[in-house]
C-alpha cells in the first residue's frame, strides 16, 4: 500500500474565541503524485485547511500526516518534505531574487553550492535571469508571483502547497506558472492547490475536493464528478454544489 502525500484523520479545529468549529472530524487523503485542487466559496475553510496542513495553524485533535510523518511529531522532517507558495508575497522586497533564494534556500536546509545551481535553474525557467540582482520591490505583480513560486520550490519539495498562486497575474505569467507546475508534477511532485480561477483548475487538476462550511462536499476525479452531477464544467459543478447565494466572510 502506498503512503498518501497527505492524510488527514478526524481533524478538529476552531479559531480562538470561536464557539463553532471550522472543521469537525474532517478526513481527507491525497495520493502522492496527484494534482489536487481544493475549491470552495469564500470562508469555506480552504486557506485554513492549507494552513493546518503546512503547520501554520495547530489542530486541536485528529492528525495530519505528510508522506506518513505526523506534522506535530516530526515537525522538522515534515518541513523538509513540502514547499509552500502562499497567496501573499512571502519574501523580502528589499532583496533581489538571488538574495531571497540564497536566504530561503539556507533556511530550507540546502548547502550553498546546491542553492547556487538551483537558483540559476529557477531564474532561467521562470524568466527572471535578466533581473536576478534587482530588488524585488521594483518588480511587476507577475514577476513577484514567479519569485514567490521559485522560493517555494528551491528545495525540490515532494509535496507543494499553492494558495492562489496566479491571482492578479497576466495571461503570459499564468501560462508560465501553470506550465512549470505541470513540469514539477511530471517529476513526481504532488501539487495541492487552491484557486478561484476554475478554468485554470480544470486545466491543472486531476482530482478535486469541494469544501463548504468546513465540510468536504465532493471529492473525486474531476471527470467523475462532472458525470455524477451532469455538469459540463467546474464552474457549473461549483454552483450546483455550493449554491448561488453570496458567501461574504464574517466581518
Amino acid at each position: 500500500m502506498t503512503i498518501p502525500a497527505v492524510s488527514i484523520e478526524k481533524l478538529n479545529f476552531a479559531y480562538q474565541g470561536q464557539s463553532t468549529k471550522t472543521f469537525s472530524n474532517l478526513n481527507l487523503d491525497i495520493a502522492e503524485g496527484e494534482r489536487f485542487g481544493l475549491f470552495g466559496p469564500n470562508g469555506a475553510g480552504k486557506t485554513t485547511l492549507m494552513h493546518l496542513m503546512t503547520g501554520l495553524l495547530s489542530n486541536s485533535s485528529g492528525s495530519i500526516r505528510i508522506l506518513g510523518n505526523d506534522i506535530k511529531q516530526h515537525k522538522k522532517e515534515v518541513r523538509r518534505l513540502f514547499g509552500f507558495v502562499p497567496q501573499d508575497f512571502s519574501f523580502y522586497h528589499e532583496l533581489s531574487p538571488v538574495e531571497n533564494l540564497e536566504f530561503f534556500g539556507a533556511w530550507a536546509g540546502l548547502p550553498a553550492k546546491t542553492i547556487k545551481s538551483r537558483t540559476t535553474d529557477l531564474l532561467e525557467i521562470l524568466g527572471l535571469s535578466d533581473v536576478y540582482n534587482k530588488p524585488v520591490e521594483k518588480f511587476s505583480g507577475g514577476m513577484k508571483r514567479r519569485v514567490n513560486l521559485a522560493i517555494g520550490v528551491i528545495h525540490k519539495p515532494r509535496v507543494l502547497f499553492l494558495d492562489e498562486p496566479t491571482v492578479g497575474v497576466d495571461v503570459q505569467t499564468r501560462h508560465a506558472i501553470i506550465g512549470y507546475r505541470k513540469h514539477l508534477n511530471s517529476n513526481g511532485t504532488t501539487l495541492i492547490y487552491t484557486s478561484h480561477q476554475l478554468a485554470e483548475a480544470e486545466d491543472l487538476c486531476n482530482k478535486i475536493a469541494l469544501i463548504d462550511e468546513g465540510e468536504i462536499i465532493a471529492h473525486d476525479q474531476l471527470s467523475s464528478l462532472l458525470t455524477q452531477h451532469s455538469e459540463e464544467g467546474l464552474e457549473g459543478l461549483f454552483l450546483n454544489l455550493t449554491g448561488k447565494a453570496y458567501r461574504d466572510s464574517d466581518v
Binding site: L56, P86, D88, S90, F104, A106, G109
Partner: peptide, 17 residues
C-alpha cells in the same frame, strides 16, 4: 507582519536563528 514570516514558519529552521 510580513508574508516572509509565514514562509519562515513552514521551513525546517527555528525562528531563534
Amino acid at each position: 507582519l510580513s508574508g516572509s514570516f509565514v514562509r519562515l514558519k513552514t521551513l525546517p529552521t527555528n525562528y531563534l536563528v
